[in-house]
Amino acid sequence: MVIPQLPASGSSRRMVELSHEEALRLLGTVQLGRVAFSERALPAIRPVNHLVEGGDLIVRTHGGAALLGRALLSEVVAYEADEIDATTRTGWSVVVTGTATRVEDPDALARYHRLLMPWLDAESGQVIRIRPVIVTGYRVVGAERG
């Protein structure tokens, strides 16, 4: 096993807060994230793929997804995605907190089914829209970057 060499603890990296717009733009550059929701009164986190459209996050679940039944109730969820370089320990992370609802419009569903593939059971599953209420994001940069 190869263990990567990490920068010394006195590294000159720093965190820069992202604007709402920049955070959503960065989310749109990756396809994979993690949705956090409540399952049997406990926190649950699942990896899902997503797209950003009109300021909302769209995710497609597989047929047995625990989030499915909850999304009918406009459940509050969190969604996190990031891109971190393991060697330099720089990159970004964005967390969106908002309400999740099931997408039911037939035209929108057909479009999202073409654009997003769930992890399992490609023929089944639902499409969930997350409307952001809180968007936070940070970029970890070296001292020479802003």
Results as ranks from 00 to 15, higher is better:
E22M: 11
I128D: 05
E123W: 01
E104S: 13
L116Y: 12
G69I: 02
G137W: 01
D121L: 11
W119N: 04
V135W: 05
P7R: 10
V16C: 11
M1H: 13
Q126Y: 13
I45C: 11
V133M: 08
L24T: 07
S124A: 14
L32Y: 00
D121C: 00
G69H: 04
L26N: 07
S74I: 00
E22S: 13
A78R: 05
R131A: 12
V135H: 06
H62K: 00
A65T: 01
V127K: 08
G63D: 08
S12F: 03
G98E: 06
G69A: 10
L109V: 12
Q126F: 10
A81F: 04
R25I: 00
L73G: 02
A86D: 08
A71N: 07
P4K: 09
G137Q: 06
V103Y: 08
V30R: 14
D56C: 13
G69W: 01
E104D: 12
I84P: 03
R114K: 15
G91I: 03
A23P: 07
V48S: 02
V52K: 02
L51S: 08
M117R: 12
V94M: 05
G69V: 06
L109D: 06
V135G: 00
R114F: 05
L67F: 03
V35L: 10
L6V: 02
I3Q: 10
L72F: 01
L26K: 11
L109P: 04
E83L: 12
G69S: 10
G125K: 09
G55W: 09
V133W: 09
P118I: 02
Q5C: 06
M1K: 01
V103F: 07
I3F: 11
P132G: 05
I134D: 12
I134L: 10
G146L: 15
G137C: 08
A81Y: 05
R145H: 13
E123A: 14
E75Y: 02
G33M: 06
R89L: 11
E53V: 03
E75C: 07
S19V: 02
R14L: 13
D105I: 03
A122E: 14
A108W: 04
E39S: 14
